[in-house]
Amino acid sequence: MNGFSNYLRMVWQVFRKDLQVEWRGRQGLPVMLIFALLVVFLFNFALQLTPGLQAGLAAGLLWVSLAFASTLGLNRSVSLEGENNALAGLLLAPVDRSAIFFGKTLSNLTFTFLVALVLLPVFSLFYQQNMLNPRLVLVILLGLGAYTSLGTLLAALSIQTRTRDVLLPVLLYPLALPVLIAAVEASRGVLAGQPLAELQSWLSLLIASNILFLAAGLLLFDTILEE
């Protein structure tokens, strides 16, 4: 029990430290937010969509914005630990290193979710759909959970490389494709007013992805970080 409470303490401390560094430096969240809003504006003005098309594309554009913003956040999360080799400080702690993975995933998820909460009213305005929908928020949480857990795992893989800024999206986007497709389809269904029961297959895929990537982090994170 003591070991497990130490583990949870480590997860919480990694999460808390990331929030604290973000609060002091404000180098991650504002950039993610501005980038996501720019994507929304650019698509809106570049595509000149009719109201009918807007409804169909809103879910896809939402997830493109979130995926790009989240990748920026993941890169920032990696560079933060690379600076002064702070990651080694976490690795020295007397707790299983998968706790670092869960703490980092939690902070990456929190930052991206905050971006999503700002994006939803903006999307509602531009795409004339009510996106402030609790069922959509649930889909976003499931999708971002899978996306950020996979992203955190791959960010750790790229941390030792010189080309990490480029490597992360190159690795992440193809592997996250099933998650993004499921998230877009589930979001589209919710916006079209379909009940969650009809979206069960997409939601199951998102839940399974969450379990898979979290389990992969639990089992592989220590090995990935080793020199």
Binding site: K17, Q20, V21, R24, G25, Q27, L80, E83, N84, N85, A86, A88, G89, L92
Partner: peptide
Amino acid sequence: YLGHQTLFYSDL
């Protein structure tokens, strides 16, 4: 352990 790098977060 004390290494060549400080292991600190610059903004804190």
